[in-house]
Design a protein around this nucleic acid. Sequence first.
DNA 1: TACATAGTTGCACAATTACGCATATAATAT
DNA 2: ATATTATATGCGTAATTGTGCAACTATGTA
Lengths: 139, 139
Amino acid sequence: MLEYLEKFKALSDETRLRIVHLLIEKNTPLCVCEFTDALEVSQYNVSRHLKILKHAKLIEENKEGRWVYFGLPKTEDAFTELIIEAIRRIPKSILSKDLEEIDKRLAIRTNGKCLTGVKKEHLLSTHPVKDKITKEFKK
Amino acid sequence: MLEYLEKFKALSDETRLRIVHLLIEKNTPLCVCEFTDALEVSQYNVSRHLKILKHAKLIEENKEGRWVYFGLPKTEDAFTELIIEAIRRIPKSILSKDLEEIDKRLAIRTNGKCLTGVKKEHLLSTHPVKDKITKEFKK
DNA sequence: TACATAGTTGCACAATTACGCATATAATAT
DNA sequence: ATATTATATGCGTAATTGTGCAACTATGTA
């Protein structure tokens, strides 16, 4: 019973629901800093919320070097599958801002992976960090 | 967003999840005193939890004289339908006690409706209240 | 009218949970 | 080694939520 209750509890927080919604819409694992920028939530809180979702087995963790990617679980039971399908029915318009922001972050990935030192405010042109990223990208 | 969040919050409490589970399994509206007996939760708390579920539009209220019946909503959106389907996937064995208890209560309904003055401890034979019920039943 | 039963609700308190801050850990680059 | 970046976490606090108790409304019955 706790197993099911825990999933509902995990989804009964706005930030966590937005996290899962992002994963469903983008259908690709995202790293902590990408969530942080897209949701405009502090890094330590994103991290904490991800931990709760992971414990509820609503997301899976995948370490890649310095980054930790979180995505939907690969093996889902019927219960979890239906919950995810339900979340997919939430109108995109309600969370369009999150989708816009994550798209900005995903646009600067290199080889499908997150880059270092990228903050939203750095996405402006002629910014030193963006220049660095651009350089990385050209490699 | 709040609309969806509210449904998850409503389901993130054990008593409330058990209430909805009962309604799904029995597929018929139940009254407050029936929930009270089946779940062994105080009547005022059952009432409060039902109010929360009703506000989240996960259940519907129906007054019949002195009794208030609560059942699954008639018109459900896709989101709610999928959530309910998910709950239906929770193994019956986990909540078999609730199902046993509600069956005892449902067994003494008259014309499909709840009777007055029935408490679980009164279901024993030769009890004055049960005798009264039995009399009622024969009418 | 008086009474009994079904259900609701205000209040105080306890438990839970989310957050900000500071700091710690882990991996990589210089 | 040292610095930098990504992520995690302990602590204190504020907000939220669940509960017991008692009082209340509402409906039906003697």
